[in-house]
Amino acid sequence: MTKPAVDLIIVGSIGIDDIETPAEKREGLLGGSVSYACAAASFFSHTGMVGVVGTDFPQEFRDTWSSMNIDLEGLQTVEGKTFSWGGKYHDNMDSRDTLFTDLGVFETFSPELPENYKEAPYLFLGNIHPALQLHVLEQVREPKFVLIDTMDLWINIAKEDLEKVISKCTMLTLNEYEAQLFTGEHSLTKAAKKLFDLGTEYVLIKKGGNGSMLFTKEDTFLLHAYPLDHFKDPTGAGDTFAGGLMGALCASGKTDKESIRQAMVYGSITASFGVEEFSLERLTKLDRDQIEIRVAEFKDMCKI
């Protein structure tokens, strides 16, 4: 069998963001789940992007992706406006308000994989409608590991489709609130047990600045977040974490529990860099050596 063109496929949204924090306001930033996830994964694996942009999409953003060696064959360009979003963060930089959402060409997005993406062994289904996630999953031939992300909107309006696609994935990731909403359980341990009933092997619950939890049917792994002195923009941190995790897991060539735990560390550390600047600005200046140095520091912090 010939080697696939890319090792990891990431599917999700691409947007142009306006972000306001207590300290600063920025407009026209490159955003979207697939932007952050592909950027993070690019430090570890050859990653293919699957998404859609409008004819207004700036060339400089394409150049940013290309400079990170992200494969863009799966990127669609459609007549119309690129998805755009505006958000304003509260003083705690944890919660935020959505100021506007304009779906643009993303509203009619139907992800189609290039033929040479279909053999990729690793797949990350970013946060899009579950029916579209399933459509992508039906196009890949024999994926080795599939991670699916979701959100409260799909839990509320498309739960049946979501349950169907989760049953075909290796690992589900969602945040603490979404896990509780999905299952009706306040206890995350009880929530994870109910989510296993859907057929997934792993449940990864994101806890923002408090790190993450990986549940298997046998045990639980707790990962703290890397402590930062300051950060500027938490937008896309969860996608950066997931993209870094999948990139590192792909680089390992493995799918066992210990390899996932190690990949979570790389995802967390990559995300810790990402929030230091707006959009992908810090990630474009990052290299693998800087990641390895911070990983070593973090592991040293966690020694008992």
Rank of each mutant, 00 (worst) to 15 (best):
P121Y: 02
T189L: 06
T98P: 08
L75P: 00
M213T: 03
E79N: 13
V140T: 14
F182S: 02
T82Y: 02
F145Q: 04
T77L: 13
P111D: 01
E107V: 10
G126T: 14
M151G: 10
E119H: 12
L204V: 06
P121H: 08
L214E: 07
E119T: 10
T108V: 15
G209N: 10
E163I: 14
E218A: 03
L113S: 02
T98R: 15
Y89L: 00
T216I: 10
Q76A: 05
D219F: 03
D102Y: 13
V136G: 12
L103D: 08
S212M: 12
F83A: 12
L132R: 07
Y89K: 10
M151N: 15
L174Y: 09
T220L: 05
Q133W: 06
E138D: 15
E119Y: 06
L162C: 01
I128S: 03
D97V: 04
L132G: 13
K206Y: 15
M213W: 01
Q76V: 14
E79K: 07
M171V: 11
N175H: 01
T189K: 02
I205P: 02
G199S: 02
Q180S: 06
V136H: 14
K88D: 07
D94G: 01
Q180E: 07
Y89N: 08
K164G: 02
K144C: 11
Y117I: 13
F109K: 02
L134E: 10
Q76D: 04
T216L: 08
P121I: 15
S167D: 06
A158T: 14
P114M: 03
V105L: 11
F124W: 06
V78D: 05
M93N: 04
D161T: 07
P114Q: 09
E218K: 08
E112W: 12
L204Y: 00
H186T: 06
D197S: 09
G86C: 12
L174F: 00
K159E: 06
